[in-house]
Structures are given as structure tokens and as C-alpha cells.
Design a protein around this nucleic acid. Structure first.
Lengths: 355, 355
DNA sequence: CAATATTGTGTTAGCGCTATCATAAGGTCA
DNA sequence: TGACCTTATGATAGCGCTAACACAATATTG
């Protein structure tokens, strides 16, 4: 134990400053400036020098002081995460991911709520006054073209997460919604289902259309005709799912499987099935999308597609930080795609021997 | 427009530094140091001087530069938010609140997940290496006495949120769980209910016992005997709620109202009631606790107690920041209590005219 | 081969704020 | 009244880092 007594520890830590550039420089036999260049991956440094510096950094356990860094450079890296009612589960995963990355990159993350009613100009003004460099948008805001355009026009860097239609000027991270929807539908088909209901998501979210496209492509691929009775419109809320599912279950020839565009609506479908006296999954297979908390809350637990929300938020945050560092205009916006994962739980089952 | 073209704005902003202490000092006719004292509420400054400085601050629109501040003072204010599986809805509200306060107080918030299996020592080591000053604990970790003790022994400042049993050395913010539970129960009684079921929460959370105590006190107060058949044990999960509710509904003399210790279990009770062919709220009133997302997701929506989670997180964060600033040992840990709110939705109704 | 780029590194001077000590102004006490 | 203690405020010197330029050392050119 280097430090003496418990009470003293915190203050000791406070004064026991870690090594600084100067320490590293001395050890490496270079100037502080060269160390700075190495850690910033900056300017030209001979490979040999770089190595020596890196060794010295490792040896001293040097960690740059963010405060000094941003004071000296005048850089700030302020990113606003603007959200307008994604589900709480979504938001929390999103927050965890973006926060982790922001603090790792030493960027500041401001969380702003944007009510539906608020005019874009007010939001922009708010961001301006907070001196924001970049804006991170989870759905449904990621699909608000007017907002995106306004932010871009104002010179903010923008990243969209989980959008189906990335803007050319924006960074974007999403999954292959269409592919995921095809995956689900193919699995239903492989399990013997032929009458597969679909509950569409809110049309103001671009991913809704992609999920539907995936559903239809998988059916077409299997040579199953698309029956418009089996496609119902929801808006991602539990309530809308209840209505949509009731309509599907009231059909003369009711589906043996339902693919809902998100977990809330899938959970509602479970409830609707139970009300209709159907056993899930024996008489009705149900698949959701997103793998949010409700998927494992209901009974049976939902088979669904897991979106790596935290990872997407992390990547998007990283893209923004890089864009901020690159300075104006330089970097081309990147659009990335992360892998989804099919998660099989209790709400789906193969169709029992056909009639 | 001062700034010329769009592309230039970001870089322009970067260089267009706002006013500094020096500007304010000049305007107020004092030294920079005095301005610093005013903004830090520090040392002795004559009321008259303070006023002049404050006027100058307002006039210039001065905002302290956090980087310079922490560089000069050597302070860091690093707070870790350690969570181990609170519900996503809870976590997201919690994050939003603590983040907002942290950024307002110019503190850094690190979010750490702590798996159940991870030994306390590993967590402590992790916090150490991140140079954490204080730890913010949402439930269920807020009730983990071993963890609390370990953190305190290591010299970390600690804040517990929503615990029923604040530690003497820790800051704490909670609501009056017992009072809230009494409130619910009294309302049931006032609505004519006499057979009121109770689904208890996980015993590893101290608030569970308080909620139960509130339920029992309200009954006692109304002269209603406590029937142990009406009290069932859950563990805050939907699944446990399903089991507990089924037991209650299978009772020869089944309850006309059920008070579940959280929303997940209340939602499960709704499902159980539906399965049993009971109409909610006509034949069974159900009340939850917390007002998390699921409360408005199910149908009918749940009557519940709203915990101001974001506010609690905000207050707790603030208490930690103050404690960090106060330095070692000085400040006495404060325990605060925030107001809860009874939210009436569709899952409760007065008992129809007693036979 | 001088004249000119190019490259890697060092020097200097702050960024905006606060710790610390110095100082001046006003009190107190014998 | 002078020796002393209180204040309130100012002057100075950094915190740890990087921008901007200066300067060698080498490469490139006609």
C-alpha cells in the first residue's frame, strides 16, 4: 500500500497527478511536442521516434489529460443526442452505447428531448446555444427529413441510427432491415407456415417499408402469393398491434404465423391470440423485431430479431467524433451496417403436420 | 449575419471564443480572481462587489470554460453510475436524469455495468482505474449492503437511489415507499374494496418490505384484518407476477383488487385476470408501482404510483457533486425524499354496489 | 553545386482558469 | 496609539497540453 490511511486516499489521488507529456518526453528523449504529435497521430514523426515515444507512454502509463487537451486546442467535441419518444428500452440501450463511446473518445454528450410539437427552429437554436458540433439521431427522428436538412443547413454534423434511408450528407449506422425481415419470413416458411400475417410499422419510419419489403420478398422467393388481407397496418404501439392482430385473427382463413414489425406489437399479438383462445406458439407463431425488454417480459417470450442498439449508437458516436476531428467538409459521410441476430424463444414453433 | 458562409460557420464558432474571466473582470472593474471567486461562491467577496461582478457576467453572457476550470483546479468530478439489471425503462429515465445534472454540474459520468457474477473487488478495481470519485447506485445495487460497504471502505463517495434503507455514510434519494403503498391501499379501501390482494417484490430490495408495510398499515388503519392468503410473493418480474396473480385469483374468495409491487407484476396480473375471464377493472382492480413504460403499454393502462426516477437521479448526482466539491469527510451525507404521484388510469375502478 | 523545397523536431507562448501568497484596508485590543 | 489580527482584493504563476512558428537536416532541382 502506497497510500497511508483510508480518509487520505481521495485527496491523495487528487494530487498524485499521473505522468504528463513532459515525463514521457524526458523518458523518450524527445520534446513534449513530439509526444503530443504521437498521441494525436499528427504531423510527421519518424517511425523510429514514434516507437520510442510509444514505449515511453506504455512505460509511464501516461494518459492524456482531456481538460488540458481541449483547453489548449480549443476543441470541444460536443455531441447532442436528440430524442423524441423512442421506446424507453430503446433509449436506454442507446444511451449506454453512445455514452460509453463518448466518454472513451473524450467527447461531451448532451441529451436533448425534442417534443413533437417543438418547431425545428427552436431545437436548432437550442443546439446552437449549447455550442453543439454534431447531432446524433435515434429513430424516429433519424427519419425526419426536414429536421435532417435543417441541421445540415445549419452546419451541424449529423448521424442517423437505424434509418432505412441514410441522407447523403449524414453519417448513418443501421442494420439490414430488409434482410432481417426476409430471415424471419423464410424461417416461418421453412417451419411449414404458408399463411403468414404481417403487421407493418409506422409509415413515418423508413425501416417500416424495408421490413415489409423483406417480408414480401421472402414470400415471393418461396412462390407464395401475397395476400393483402394478411398485411395490416400498425404504428409500433402495443395498442395498434392489438387492433391489427385482432383483424388478422378474425380472418376467415386466419394466419398460422404473424410477423410483427416490432416487439410491442408482437406482444400485443400474443395477448390478442390468448383472448381469441389460441395457444402460442402451438396454434399461432409470433415473431417480433428489436428484442427490447418487452420481448422477455411477456409469456411466452418472443422470438425476435435483435438489433445491436448499443453498438449502433457507439459506432454512430464514433463516426461523429471522427468527423468533428476531421474538421469541416473533409471526411465523406460513412454509412455502416451492423449485423442483426435472430433470437429464437418460445413464441414460434413449426406448423404441426399440415391438416 | 456576422459569419459569412455556411461551411465556415463551424470553424468560425470554434475560434469565436466567448467572453472570459478577463472580460468580465475588466467590465466590473475588478481582478480576474475576484470574478473567479464570485462564480465559485468562494472566499469572501463584498456583497457590493459580488453584485457588480454578477452584473458584468450577465452583461457579457459569460460562461465558464469547464476545461480551463478543471485544468487549473485539478478537480475532476468523475462519477460512476453502476447498474446491474434494473429494467430498461428505469435505467433510461435514470440515465437521462443523471446525465442532465452531470453535464450541468460539469461532472463526468461513467456508466458501468456490473454483472451479478462479478466480484466486488473487480468492480472496485475498475472504478479505481477510472479514477472515480463517487458512485451512483440505482436499485437493485442501491440495496447491496456488501457493495456499499466495500465502496465506502475504499473511499468512494456513494449515493443510493430509491433504497428503503439508506446507509449512514451514503447520500440517498428516495420516495416514501411506505406512504405510497398506503396511499394506494387507502384508495382501494375508499373505493369499497375489502379483499385486496398484494404481490410483494423481491426481498433483496429494501423498498419491497416498505411497500408491504404500507399495505398492511392501511388495512390495519381501516380495521381490515390482514389475510395472509391475500399476500403473495413475487420478485418484480412479469413471470413471477403471473404466478402470484394466478394464486390470488384461484382463491376461493378471490380479491376484488390487487396491488402489485411494480408495474411488470401488475401487467402480469392483467393478463392473468384476462385468462381467468375477468374484466379489468370491472371485476378486478389492479394497481402497479413505478409508472414505467409497461404501465401504458398494456390494456387497460395501469393505475400506478409514479416515481420521479429522473429527478431522483438528478438529485443524487447533484448530492455527489457537492460532496466531491466539499472535499473529504466534511459534508454530512444527506438523505432526501422526493414526492411520488398517484396516477389513475384504466385498471382500477370502485367496487360496484356491494351485494 | 548553390538554390530551393521538404521533412522531422524543438521552442515559445499561450488556452482560461484558479492556488497561493502578498497587500491594502479596516478593525481590535492593551 | 502602535502592535496585532481580520478581512477583501490583487498579482503572479502555473495546471497539461498544443498552435504556430523556427530551425536544422536532408532531399530535390536546374
Amino acid at each position: 500500500m502506497k497510500q497511508d490511511s483510508k480518509p487520505a486516499m481521495r485527496s491523495a489521488r487528487r494530487s498524485a497527478k499521473g505522468p504528463t507529456v513532459a515525463d514521457v518526453a524526458r523518458l523518450a528523449g524527445v520534446s513534449a511536442m513530439t509526444v503530443s504529435r504521437v498521441i494525436n497521430n499528427d504531423g510527421k514523426v519518424l517511425p523510429k521516434t514514434r516507437e520510442r515515444v510509444e514505449a515511453a507512454i506504455a512505460a509511464t502509463g501516461y494518459v492524456p489529460n482531456p481538460a488540458a487537451r481541449s483547453l489548449a486546442s480549443g476543441r470541444q467535441r460536443r455531441i447532442a443526442l436528440v430524442h423524441a419518444n423512442p421506446s424507453a428500452a430503446y433509449l436506454s440501450e442507446f444511451l449506454v452505447g453512445s455514452l460509453a463511446e463518448a466518454s472513451a473518445c473524450d467527447a461531451q454528450l448532451l441529451v436533448e428531448h425534442c417534443s413533437e410539437a417543438e418547431p425545428t427552429s427552436a431545437l436548432v437554436a437550442r443546439l446552437r446555444s449549447h455550442n453543439i458540433d454534431a447531432v446524433l439521431l435515434p429513430p424516429p427522428l433519424a427519419d425526419d427529413m426536414a429536421l435532417l436538412a435543417a441541421l445540415n443547413a445549419e452546419g451541424f454534423l449529423v448521424a442517423q441510427v437505424a434509418t432505412g434511408l441514410p441522407a447523403s450528407f449524414a453519417r448513418a449506422v443501421s442494420i439490414d432491415d430488409e434482410g432481417a425481415a426476409m430471415d424471419i419470413t423464410r424461417r416461418f416458411i421453412a417451419a411449414g407456415h404458408r399463411r403468414i400475417g404481417f403487421i407493418a410499422g409506422n409509415t413515418n419510419q423508413t425501416s417500416s417499408a424495408l421490413r415489409r419489403a423483406g417480408y414480401e420478398r421472402a414470400l415471393a422467393e418461396a412462390g407464395i402469393a401475397i395476400d393483402s388481407d394478411l398485411i395490416t397496418q400498425g404504428d409500433f404501439t402495443y395498442r395498434s398491434g392489438l387492433d391489427a392482430a385482432s383483424r388478422l385473427l378474425a380472418l376467415a382463413q386466419r394466419p398460422t404465423a404473424v410477423f410483427a414489425s416490432n416487439d410491442d406489437m408482437a406482444a400485443a399479438t400474443v395477448t390478442a391470440a390468448h383472448r381469441a383462445g389460441l395457444d402460442v406458439p402451438r396454434q399461432l407463431s409470433i415473431c417480433g423485431f428489436d428484442d427490447t425488454a418487452i420481448a422477455t417480459t411477456v409469456w411466452p417470450e418472443l422470438t425476435t430479431i435483435r438489433q445491436p442498439i448499443a453498438d449502433m449508437a457507439r459506432r454512430a458516436t464514433r463516426l461523429l467524433v471522427e468527423a468533428i476531428d476531421a474538421g469541416d467538409e473533409k471526411s465523406t459521410p460513412r454509412h455502416e451496417r451492423l449485423e442483426f441476430e435472430f433470437i429464437e424463444r418460445g413464441s414460434t414453433a413449426p406448423l404441426p403436420a399440415l391438416d
